[in-house]
Design a protein around this nucleic acid. Structure first.
Lengths: 352, 352
DNA sequence: ATGAAAGCGCTAACAA
DNA sequence: TTGTTAGCGCTTTCAT
């Protein structure tokens, strides 16, 4: 059993509240000698306050829960470390900690087998990191939880923090234009539908950024009288065809001088094709992509348009904590501006 | 404020213990009518038991803490989702939940600014996921925590769960031999030292699997009278040279017919070089690699030697929980066997 | 079958 | 400056 105030009180011959005062809030109202004795004993005995006891007393858990969705059908869903960093940094400011739980996107969730964090009262607020839609049961459970809740990475009318992909792509395209580029392509692959998934469902299930980056790019191009060009044109191909699509795009006399890749996934076939065709990056082709980190692919250092994961985490915590401290009707959504950085290693001014 | 037993008691006209009994342990000892009334009210009012109150009563937090190290100097440290899955699955068996915290690998940690999870008493046990060495201060703080603690992904004398990379590589090499391969190479890049990092320190800081996979490979080769071949021979190169190294390896008349890649990072230059040289995988070259998931690179489906992350998570929880329930002197280390799967898409029988 | 009492560890209010 | 009392939400006796 862990060391309690009572044990320290017994060891020092003082009362429990005295010991508690010295070790937490009101230490200044005690004699130097007492403080010395208590602090010394606490250190020696390895005292650490019981967080649950404090939670009960204060009516606050001092804890937020991060709910991660889990998708059985597709692999490689994961917790971006930048998000966690942002969340933890901001939580530290409020002396709070984090509980993490995953929620199954399967029929199992229908059986009322909710994770413990949702079944019991464990946190003062929830951050739901959507990678896709959550099942009804979970949604209901979340609403029933009488604590503030916010979503990240999803574009909702209220209560979500998401990167502003429309503006980012628009600005990025404008930026490339200013650097002299006229043939700018957006390369964006979508997987062919899963078995049993219709095409329209596939598109509807896609992340909001698929449509938003597309729109931002189109608007910027059209504004400047340029013709938007997508690879592949229909946007939807099987994984094996990625290289072919990149080949078709880059092995043309009027190939683009700048390419915006939707994500890191689009990057690899592109780089491969460029290398094989003897095209130099960034001299012959400028490459930009949306990602969480700069990449080194096939020896080429590539600078990413960095998804503001850390700020997303920070903002999410900030909003939830605010809602906890002064409960209001609802949390407004926030579209986070990207920072299109000044230094883009893999982008060059277009040659005449 | 959340709904409490007292509120339900008030609403139903019953006593707090009665309501509590029905809703938790001893429901069977009450009349059907009472049960009905209580359960109905609880559902209607959205009752969820206060986890902290239970923790106080029971003397158990019902919670484990996962400590992730954070390395400022190198990016891309992250929480493998498979580990989290394993941890959560096993925790669910014990009706426990998970707290996650990151610990800075910087001097800040020296200032006694420990994360709240370590400063306070919040969990019944700790799982420390090492990606590298933790600073002394943190190590000390962990020891002082009077709860069971286990490390993952680190090879220690006691208290760690780690994949058995030696045996895995040895078996894998044997397996390739049985399929007719004689020229088998291990491709394993190490980054050049960071500024201020000596070469020997760089090697010492490397993950245990670097040495273990190397040893397993060498032992298997030597046992069969074959000559181990590494690319690059010295093992230590800069990132930009990865492609050159792969080129040197594969553009030779006596090029290997099978390649074991240390990790996913080694894979990409290899695939690129093979594609560019017109070498077919797996027809001309068999490729295997250590990774968390199968990969599709440049249109080629590659089957990974899967690092047993999920089992690592499960075992870690199992061991810690056991130590919590029956405290013993120390937790023994466990080397987890890999499962070299029967189906290896990217491996073919060697041609004569 | 139900309720009264007690106590887990901690802290705020009050009394000494 | 220090100690006493009380109570947060829950559960485990033990009476009724």
């Amino acid at each position: 059993m862990a060391v309690t105030l009572r044990e320290i009180a017994k060891a020092t011959g003082l009362s429990v509240p005295t010991v508690g005062n010295v070790l937490s809030t009101a230490g200044h109202r005690h004699s130097a000698k007492t403080r010395e004795v208590v602090l010394d004993a606490a250190r020696r005995m390895g005292y650490r306050p019981n967080a649950s006891a404090r939670a009960i007393r204060s009516g606050r858990f001092g804890c937020l829960a991060l709910i991660l969705s889990r998708q059985k059908t597709r692999t490689h869903s994961y917790l971006p470390i930048g998000l966690l960093d942002g969340i933890e940094a901001e939580l530290g400011q409020h002396d709070m900690h984090l509980t993490v739980t995953r929620v199954d996107d399967s029929l199992l969730a229908e059986d009322g087998v909710l994770p413990k964090v949702l079944r019991q009262s464990t946190a003062d607020g929830l951050i739901v990191h959507y990678t896709h839609e959550l099942p009804e049961t979970i949604q209901a459970a979340l609403k029933n939880n009488q604590v503030p809740i916010i979503g990240t990475n999803a574009k909702l009318d209220a209560g979500s923090i998401y990167p502003d992909d429309y503006s980012a792509t628009k600005e990025l395209t404008a930026r490339l234009y200013e650097m002299g580029h006229r043939r700018i392509a957006l390369i964006q692959y979508l997987h062919t539908p899963l078995p049993g998934e219709t095409l329209s469902l596939r598109l509807k299930n896609a992340h909001y950024s698929v449509a938003d980056r597309r729109r931002g790019y189109i608007d910027a191009m059209v504004e400047r009288g340029l013709v938007p060009e997508f690879a592949p044109p229909e946007g939807l191909i099987a994984h094996e065809q990625f290289v072919d699509a990149a080949n078709r795009l880059m092995n043309r006399p009027d190939r683009p001088t700048a390419v915006i890749a939707y994500s890191e996934r689009e990057l690899l076939p592109l780089i491969h094709v460029c290398r094989s065709a003897g095209l130099s990056i960034p001299k012959d082709v400028s490459v930009t992509f949306f990602g969480s980190d700069d990449q080194i692919l096939l020896g080429l250092p590539l600078s990413a348009i960095q998804i503001p994961l850390e700020r997303m985490g920070r903002e999410a915590v900030r909003c939830v904590v605010q809602a906890i401290e002064s409960p209001g009707p609802s949390i407004p959504s926030i579209a986070l501006r990207y920072q299109i950085r000044d230094r883009m290693d893999s982008v060059a001014v277009a040659k005449k």
